[in-house]
Write a protein that binds this DNA or RNA. Sequence first.
DNA 1: CATGAATGAGATTTCATTCAT
DNA 2: GATGAATGAAATCTCATTCAT
Lengths: 186, 186, 186, 186
Amino acid sequence: MTKKEKIMEAAIRLFCSLGFQNTSTTKITKEAGVGTGTLFLYFKSKDQLVNDLYLEIKKEMQVYHHVFSNSNLAFKDQLNTFWVEVVHWGLANPDKFKFLMQFKNSPYLTRITMDEVSEDHKFVAEVMQKAIADGLIINQPFEFLMALFTSQFLSIIQYLTLQNNDQQEALIQTSFEILWNGIKKN
Amino acid sequence: MTKKEKIMEAAIRLFCSLGFQNTSTTKITKEAGVGTGTLFLYFKSKDQLVNDLYLEIKKEMQVYHHVFSNSNLAFKDQLNTFWVEVVHWGLANPDKFKFLMQFKNSPYLTRITMDEVSEDHKFVAEVMQKAIADGLIINQPFEFLMALFTSQFLSIIQYLTLQNNDQQEALIQTSFEILWNGIKKN
Amino acid sequence: MTKKEKIMEAAIRLFCSLGFQNTSTTKITKEAGVGTGTLFLYFKSKDQLVNDLYLEIKKEMQVYHHVFSNSNLAFKDQLNTFWVEVVHWGLANPDKFKFLMQFKNSPYLTRITMDEVSEDHKFVAEVMQKAIADGLIINQPFEFLMALFTSQFLSIIQYLTLQNNDQQEALIQTSFEILWNGIKKN
Amino acid sequence: MTKKEKIMEAAIRLFCSLGFQNTSTTKITKEAGVGTGTLFLYFKSKDQLVNDLYLEIKKEMQVYHHVFSNSNLAFKDQLNTFWVEVVHWGLANPDKFKFLMQFKNSPYLTRITMDEVSEDHKFVAEVMQKAIADGLIINQPFEFLMALFTSQFLSIIQYLTLQNNDQQEALIQTSFEILWNGIKKN
DNA sequence: CATGAATGAGATTTCATTCAT
DNA sequence: GATGAATGAAATCTCATTCAT
């Protein structure tokens, strides 16, 4: 693992357990086992570190978009698969998930980061718009549907992380059905 | 307006536009037009100020719970009314709403504040449980339903605040129906 | 007890248990049960309060000088009586004693206070000088002898305060003899 | 001289001339010619600085204990030599001496510092106890004799520092004899 | 006389960032 | 590239003192 990677790992861990401003750059470098100056060799500033981490994690999640390219599946099944996979990712990577939640609306994310992320949304937007055009889901603004999706994603993960439920898989499926029953056209 | 009120108003305004740690206590007192020491006369610390504000705003929202006591309305209509009223409150008080969002999961809120807030949840919990028992909504853990409700509430307000949509009232109603179609028993 | 007296009592108590700069004027007035402003009605400043207290306590100790006027007693017996009485006073008033020790060499005492105190020394100086002239004690500068006296006074009280010795009276007498054997002419 | 040493020197100088709470950490760093943050790089807090200084100076004085190991000298001569050397040290290092005086009984010294210092007392205690056992000095509690010794030491130095006496060496010897005549047996 | 809300200068401490090695 | 000692701006919080009531 490179020093840069060590720093990124340590930063995510500490930001999540201590919060952004209780995590000094010195603490990060100590946790990463590198010199204090090294952080600034790879990241212009502490803010830049946050932005880079955000983009990195977003990219990691993007992998799950592939299911929408599988034309053997109906849209509902594509969405269902995506849902299950992404929720599992969140449960398996609680620190990264918490990091996303913490910084989603924070002033640390610069416009540039925001823009890079919306690039990523475009693909999902097209998928959704096709589903609307096909009369599968209700005709509402894309951003509204995305906000809905995100909020339900957040709530199921938060619930499962806190409660340690033994019916986990069933609940994940239930949560998808709640979402689907809400947005499907009937 | 008392000095204490001036400080609370200024704090909410600044916390929302600048974030918690970009808002120094000095900035708050300057914005409020009082001496730097005056803040600490009314709030033991900057952290205490956040906690007090949180409880204050939560109490303000609690007012809308009254609709659940109106036995002339069916549960769906109670929930619908509550939804519309609370979303309107959020839109009318964007700063207070943003404040709640920012601190909901933050480490600044102490256990004591958390406990005071969950007191408030008890009433809503009973209402929900009765609806489950009556077979009106799906039988799922209360905390899960609450998380769902809350996060969907946040996302609709956030969406409307950002987009300045001219179909606002219709969208609020739609958002309720998405929620209801998701959780209703059929 | 007047408000002024209440403040002085509270101040001695708090200065001794908490130290000078851990004792705010607000704490003193709270302990005294008066308003914050009242302290400044009777004492120009916190520093002035310390000076006034110092002079007050010094005056209280001065009472024991009377024994030197009793011409029925030999000088050694005068000094012995004085010693025993003053040590008893110190043991009975540990707060006042500690206060004197704490401020004896502190920068809080102004020149004026110092001067007022040396006035008081003049009487003792005369008594000492007569004893030197009479060949009873060694011929050394008065201030040197006084410093000696004070330091032994300090050490016996500090020892007895800390140790709670059951041979207290015997030790007080012993301490006098140590002093006397040290300074007597032989 | 390292920055840490510069800070320690400046701190002693200022604590002695201005007192502890009139000496801000900023003043110390300015006097030492280093950045404000540098003080906290070497000392966790202002309080810690005082404790470290105290232990440092105590250690410096401890050097004079060596004379008690010289078995060619009788106890009285050992004590006499020690007395003279230590008084000279005090006169040569008035700031360090004043520092010790100021903090000896102050609440700034932590229990840990106290304990470290009493370790140092153990050696002297043994020496004294042997002298008592040998019937050379009066049989009194060790702590009492130590208090006596210490306070008399302080008073002679204080006296000589203030008075600038030209009979200095004679007075130092006299002060020892006063002590010895006080505590010697018979 | 007595009060206590209000003040703001000043104290301690933190920490992102730099730069000489 | 890598380091970590050094920095100083800025943050939070305290408290002696004032003054309108």
